[in-house]
Design a protein around this nucleic acid. Structure first.
Length: 712
DNA sequence: AATCCGTCTATTTTT
DNA sequence: TAGACGGATT
């Protein structure tokens, strides 16, 4: 018993052992937030205050949810499988599956990700003959999602202008289409389950009686609807335990409402507000910088982090003449750290926007440094995977017109736009889904469509009793998808990804202990598949500041600290925009444990134009005494003196490569293609791929591992 | 159905 | 500058 509470500081202990009352835990960066949350759960169970079934714990990411479950099961010998620990979307999905009838959904309803949603909106607009110039689908999709996240249906929206008026129409039509097709988007998952509980009193009371303790992670990121959802489940008698940090609220543009923290305190007359202010992550100087910076924000709940660790090293500041030099300097610094014994995986390069990563990747690659970029294309988002999933979706739910349209002619089977039009007319007349309307289409169009339906039906027959991975395998064969990509010139990657999908299905069955198709599809929609390969390798980490939230590294490089970039020029216009940028900088700084670098460049190539930026105001907001300038402190980035020059040649050209022996511009020979020259490269280590110009043989992308290139 | 070509537009994005 | 997209062309 005592071991559970060992080594907690007084505030953590207080939070963990709070009586059953509402609580707001203001947990600063690196203050042991997850630990408090999980220990609280373990403590509640161990002391008999709650049963595993009586708990509801909500997070934003699957990763956080998984981490929580892992830690809980390490602390307690209980079966975590039945526990309601998950993301808002995951839990809502669970709720709606269990009560699909009450929620007015088909049992096998499908989930649309943002891409699918956009496609669905486009179909609605097309059907309504809307001018996409005046009403861009993206904006309409955003309008709909935003409305849902405010908890609003079309009839609840106050119409003030033309766009809103039409937007409401589109929203209605879109909802109708989704309902007909048996699909729900992300926001709908939440709104639908909220409405379900609001409408259905017995059900609401059932869950309220069950979840005596509701715990929320990253509370500052909740939107209005999520807060209402929580309040509804909490009812009058249950306790809400919310953990969050207003200083780390960086997702306002996605609907997050920091105000929920103050509202929660007010709505529930929260007596227990506990501040976790001891930081266990960063050295003193780093923390002091973070504190000084964030102090420039108004409207804070107030909190000051401190650490028992010493001051540590000063924060290193670097001014580069250009983005290219910044990258070249990074390479040298990273190599120096590596020589000192730091692993690459313990270093992170952070940037404000994704576009910045390229030049740094180039420099790293040219120097043979393994790196890994986070937040790129995710597995389940790839076209070929989405195509395959669409077949599965159609198997599970023939009414899914979105899935139908995606694959009816892919791979091509002679079903053109005219056939589709005829089919759509028929479907409209019969008010049925496209799939079901196929038999009523006459003539040649009917035959080719019929052939498609037969493929699906055969597939359905033949896979009825097969385990999930084999279903996927059969689909890949019978649909012709695999053959299609196998015969495509650059299809090797895609073929591999399709094979990976079979593996994903197998892994899913193994982990979840069930092989239900609809559950797998929900999994694919809700977990975009971030846990890709390459996690074990020692690679430098690169990501945007947003995706760094929740992580920590020994050494952190915050790059591109320039006015216009960070803070971003678009944010400075919005109200509260600058403060959010500052919070972003705060998050970035607090990722660092022992060493922190801040860098900026005098010139930067953006959108094909050279831009001259001045140093970010955030640099001025960090006290001078904490910083050590690696370049002469010039005061302004616009000074006439060129800043640092790399020891090696110009950064954009080729450099020596100790890692894999190849560099851009190098001549190489290939067994089949003959001689060529390396023009570009991506990835690193085992995953490295080189683009080689073989002259007459053309341009080829080659995997370094297999290509057996010889330098000439 | 595939390819080409001009036009447009460039934050962040847990689900 | 580069990529994504839509429309026109073959």
């Amino acid at each position: 018993m005592s071991s559970l509470l060992d080594n907690l500081n007084p505030e953590q202990l207080a939070a963990v052992t709070l009586p059953s009352q509402h609580a707001l835990i203001l947990a600063g960066a690196g203050s042991g937030k997850t630990r408090v949350l999980t220990t609280r759960i373990a403590w509640l169970i161990q002391t008999g205050n709650a049963s595993p079934n009586g708990l509801l714990a909500v997070t934003f990411t699957n990763k956080a949810a998984k981490e929580m479950l892992t830690r809980i099961s390490a602390m307690l010998p209980i079966n975590i499988r039945g526990m309601w620990v998950g993301t808002f979307h995951g839990l809502c999905n669970r709720l709606l599956r269990a009560h699909h009838r009450d929620a007015n959904l088909p049992q096998l309803f499908q989930i649309l990700d943002s891409q699918d949603q956009l496609a669905a909106v486009k179909r609605v607009l097309k059907a309504m003959n809307v001018d996409e110039e005046r009403f861009p689908p993206r904006q309409v999709a955003y309008f709909i999602s935003a409305a849902k996240e405010e908890g609003k249906r079309p009839r609840d929206i106050e119409v003030t202008d033309e766009f809103t008026r039409r937007g409401v129409d589109f929203y209605s039509a879109y909802d109708e289409q989704c309902q007909k097709e048996g699909v729900v988007d992300f926001a709908e998952l939440l709104l639908r389950s909220f409405e379900l509980l609001a409408r259905n009193e017995p059900l609401r009371e059932h869950y309220q009686a069950r979840f005596r303790h509701i715990l929320v992670d990253e509370f500052q990121d909740t939107n209005r609807l999520q807060y209402r959802w929580l309040r509804q489940l909490a009812g009058r008698d249950n306790t809400l335990f919310a953990v969050g940090d207003d200083d780390q609220s960086i997702f306002r543009f996605r609907g997050a409402n920091v105000g929920n923290m103050a509202e929660f305190e007010h709505d529930y007359k929260v007596q227990n507000v506990i501040r976790l202010e001891q930081n266990y992550r960063s050295h003193g100087n780093i923390l002091a910088a973070a504190n000084a910076l964030i102090a420039h924000n108004s409207r804070r709940l107030g909190k000051n982090l401190w650490t028992a660790a010493g001051e540590g090293e000063p924060i290193r500041v670097f001014e580069a003449a250009s983005d290219g030099y910044e990258a070249a300097w990074l390479v040298e610094e990273v190599q120096a750290l590596s020589r000192e014994g730091m692993a690459y995986r313990d270093m992170a390069i952070l940037y404000r926007s994704n576009a910045q990563s390229r030049i740094m990747e180039h420099a790293l690659f040219s120097n043979g440094i393994a790196y890994r970029v986070y937040g790129g294309q995710r597995f389940f988002d790839r076209v070929e995977v989405k195509h395959a999933l669409a077949y599965l979706r159609l198997l599970a739910n023939p009414d899914d017109d979105g899935a139908f349209l995606r694959i009816v002619n892919f791979p091509t089977r002679g079903i053109g736009a005219r056939s589709i039009e005829q089919l759509q007319d028929a479907a409209l007349a019969a008010s049925s889904s496209l799939y079901k309307a196929v038999p009523s289409v006459p003539g040649k169009a009917g035959t080719s469509l019929g052939a498609f339906v037969r493929i699906i039906e055969t597939l359905r027959e033949e896979t009825r009793d097969l385990p999930l991975p084999e279903v996927v395998g059969a689909l890949l064969e019978k649909s012709g998808l695999l053959a299609h990509y196998q015969s495509e010139r650059d299809g090797a990657d895609r073929v591999e990804n399709l094979g990976e999908l079979v593996n994903a299905a197998a892994a899913f069955v193994q982990e979840e202990g069930e092989g239900d198709l609809a559950t797998f599809l929900a999994h694919a929609a809700l977990e975009s598949g971030e846990n890709q390969a390459g996690e074990g390798t020692d690679a430098l980490q690169m990501m945007t500041v947003h995706s760094a939230k929740g992580l920590e590294f020994h050494a952190v490089f915050i790059t591109g600290l320039e006015e216009g970039l960070f803070p971003h020029e678009q944010s400075v216009m919005e109200d509260d925009g600058l403060e959010e940028e500052r919070r972003l900088a705060y998050v970035a700084i607090t990722r660092a444990r022992t060493r922190l670098y801040l860098s900026f460049a005098q010139t930067r190539l953006l959108h094909g134009q050279t831009r001259y930026n001045i140093a970010s105001r955030f640099l001025d907001e960090v006290p001078d005494g904490l910083m050590k300038w690696l370049t002469p402190r010039l005061g302004s980035a616009l000074s006439q003196e060129p800043a640092w020059q790399p020891q090696a040649a110009a950064p954009r050209s080729s450099q020596k490569d100790p890692g894999h022996g190849f560099r851009i511009g190098q001549s190489v020979a290939h067994a089949k293609f003959g001689q060529g020259v390396i023009v570009s490269a991506e990835g690193s280590g085992k995953d490295a791929r080189l683009q080689v110009n073989f002259g007459r043989q053309g341009m080829k992308w080659l995997a370094l591992e297999y290509a057996k290139l010889v330098p000439v």
